[in-house]
């Protein structure tokens, strides 16, 4: 079968981008969306053109590197699937697929379909951890954690940080990503001592990064490859409300967002 890929091409953040349409032969339905791009890139390079830059690594749906919009849906039409696992059998001969990068001011564009998601790392830096240095741990079974609690925590912890939630949200909100980490650690007894501080700091960072507000409509969870539920956002709101009250006496700071790629190099 043949498909047309209409892809956003943009050399760098400062240049003007545009859509370019490329016809691609799909060998069989088991081919993934990214393998389709591989085939296209081989062709482009054969013609001396620059290949399409796209982010990818594990190609088994867990690293969270890949992701772009396909016909207006983050990660494409198949639920709970990253683009690396999206096989071409879900499309028909002659389909036109519009591939567009995540669009958010908190994910500045790098090149073609590649964006900068370091804002997510900074949200984790702000408090997405349990402050326990190596060597401090009691025996693994010292604190019992009920199966249901462990399962709930795992539901939230399954987030792969791909950014689809932000990309799909009409408001560009990072509530699902932030909520998932706050919920994962807040649910577990190990995360309780820092629950308030974590929520307040992570929410502050999320706001400083310039993400939009959550209007509880659920577009994020609809595209989430790991189907992180909307209730993680409620969990964040609860922890934040309680935390903001209990931590009202404490100073909260945030990390200045960085968008350049200069690491002290001359």
């Amino acid at each position: 079968m043949k498909v047309k890929l209409t892809i956003w091409r943009q050399k760098n953040p400062d240049s003007k981008g545009q859509f370019i349409t490329y016809p691609v032969d799909v060998v069989n339905g088991e081919m993934s969306m990214l393998e389709c791009l591989d085939v296209l890139n081989e062709t482009l390079m054969g013609r001396g053109e620059e290949p399409v830059a796209f982010e990818h690594d594990c190609r088994e749906g867990i690293c969270g590197s890949c992701g772009f919009m396909i016909n207006g849906i983050a990660h494409g039409p198949l639920p709970a699937t990253t683009v690396c696992q999206l096989t071409m059998r879900h499309f028909k001969d002659g389909d036109e697929l519009v591939l567009e990068p995540w669009r958010s001011r908190s994910f500045p564009l790098v090149k073609d379909l590649v964006v900068d998601r370091r804002s997510f790392d900074r949200i984790i830096q702000a408090g997405g951890y349990v402050s326990v240095s190596t060597g401090n741990a009691p025996d693994g079974n010292a604190i019992p954690v009920g199966k249901e609690i462990a399962d709930r925590a795992m539901d939230a912890a399954a987030c792969i940080g791909c950014g689809a939630c932000v990309a799909a949200c009409p408001n560009g909100s990072a509530a699902l990503f932030t909520g998932a980490k706050i919920a994962h650690l807040g649910i577990l007894p190990q995360g309780k001592p820092e629950q308030d501080r974590r929520a307040v700091r992570m929410v502050a960072q999320m706001n400083v990064e310039g993400f939009g507000s959550c209007t509880n409509i659920g577009e994020c969870t609809g595209v989430c490859p790991k189907e992180i539920p909307l209730e993680e956002i409620a969990r964040m709101n609860r922890d934040y409300l309680l935390g903001a009250w209990r931590e009202r006496g404490n100073v909260v700071t945030a990390i200045a967002p960085v968008t350049d790629w200069n690491f002290g190099e001359k």
């Binding site: 929410v203 502050a204 706001n207 993400f211 939009g212 959550c214 964040m236 709101n237 700071t253 200045a256």
Partner: peptide, 12 residues
């Protein structure tokens, strides 16, 4: 170092 949003300033 960034100024952080107050309760009212935060989206939440």
């Amino acid at each position: 170092e960034n100024r952080t949003p107050s309760f009212w300033q935060s989206t939440n």
